[in-house]
Structure formats: structure tokens, C-alpha cells
């Protein structure tokens, strides 16, 4: 029920945005996440953008995990 999917913002128009997810284009409401821009990644839930996804933070998390437990970590 709390399923939420990442999507790429393509266009923003007022309190709506056109987003791309899995090759499909959807119209979603953006009232819960102000200041969206095309190119942002968002988490979608029940037809609403629920939060922006931070790609840098995603990379940082993965980098730390790879450093600690990845192949190079020789753990």
C-alpha cells in the first residue's frame, strides 16, 4: 500500500507535472513537493509526487557501501 515509485520529471505546469516512469508518461500532482524542475527525480505515491530523490545522496550511500563491503573492500 505504501508502494512508491521513482520517476523523472519532464514538464511542470502549476500544481501538476508530467513524469516518465517505466517508459510511460503520467500526469501527477505536485502540491506536496514545491519547486520541482524538469530533470528532477521524484518518488510517486497515489498520483502525487511525495518527495524529491537526491541522486547525489544515492551515489554517496552506494559509494560508502561499496567501500565497506564491495569487492574492493576485500572483506
Amino acid at each position: 500500500m505504501c508502494l512508491a515509485m521513482p520517476a523523472l520529471v519532464r514538464k511542470v505546469d502549476g500544481d501538476q507535472a508530467e513524469v516518465e516512469m517505466g517508459g510511460n508518461v503520467w500526469q501527477v500532482k505536485t502540491g506536496l513537493v514545491p519547486n520541482l524542475k524538469p530533470g528532477d527525480y521524484v518518488l510517486l505515491h497515489a498520483g502525487f509526487a511525495l518527495e524529491k530523490i537526491d541522486p547525489e545522496q544515492a551515489e554517496e550511500t552506494l559509494r560508502l557501501l561499496e567501500e565497506a563491503y564491495g569487492e574492493a573492500a576485500n572483506s
Binding site: 521513482p6 517505466g22 541522486p55 551515489e59 552506494l62 563491503y69 569487492e71 573492500a73
Partner: peptide, 20 residues
């Protein structure tokens, strides 16, 4: 399929196996 830099790395099988 949209490129998902936010998801792909978190599906990495090798990293998952090392965590297990």
C-alpha cells in the same frame, strides 16, 4: 525504461551477496 541512477546500484547482485 528510464535510466534510474537512484535504483540500479541498489539492485547490484554482487554487493547484495557480500552484505548477506
Amino acid at each position: 525504461m528510464v535510466k534510474q541512477p537512484i535504483a540500479d546500484g541498489f539492485r547490484d547482485r554482487k554487493l547484495a551477496e557480500r552484505l548477506v
